[in-house]
Write a protein that binds this DNA or RNA. Sequence first.
DNA 1: GCATTGACGAAGG
DNA 2: CCCTTCGCCAATG
Length: 130
Amino acid sequence: MVPKKSSRKSPSEEQPRSLSRQYSFFEDVYQVVRQVPRGRITTYGAIARYLGTGLSARMVGWAMNGAHHVHPAVPAHRVVNRNGMLSGKAHFETPTQMEELLGKEKVRVEKDTVVDFEKRFWDPARELGL
DNA sequence: GCATTGACGAAGG
DNA sequence: CCCTTCGCCAATG
């Protein structure tokens, strides 16, 4: 399961990062993203708030950098920025892959932005319980 | 050890 | 409503 809310200001409380490259914050991010249903999307900020980091949505995006080579797979294409824009598409194998993956889930994208973003939005705090 | 850099977001102009 | 600035914090040079 996912640790609901714990202030992890210092990573040393969890695991020494020297021993694990991606310490729990990264793992938490991955686990949340993995729970995003097909056809739905969430945002970096929503994940950050759910994990309690709150103000550091950037770290969520940073965590996604390692999401490509982790197992099980992380549906990174379901994470967009607060405007619903595919801000991370450049980090996929091809410039169009993120949009294509979303298309397979019936999520339309226009101008690098998810159509009906607010309807598709999946808030971990709301769906998984705060 | 300081400066820069982000797949961000809120606030201010 | 668009653009700029600033805060956030781990990673990198």
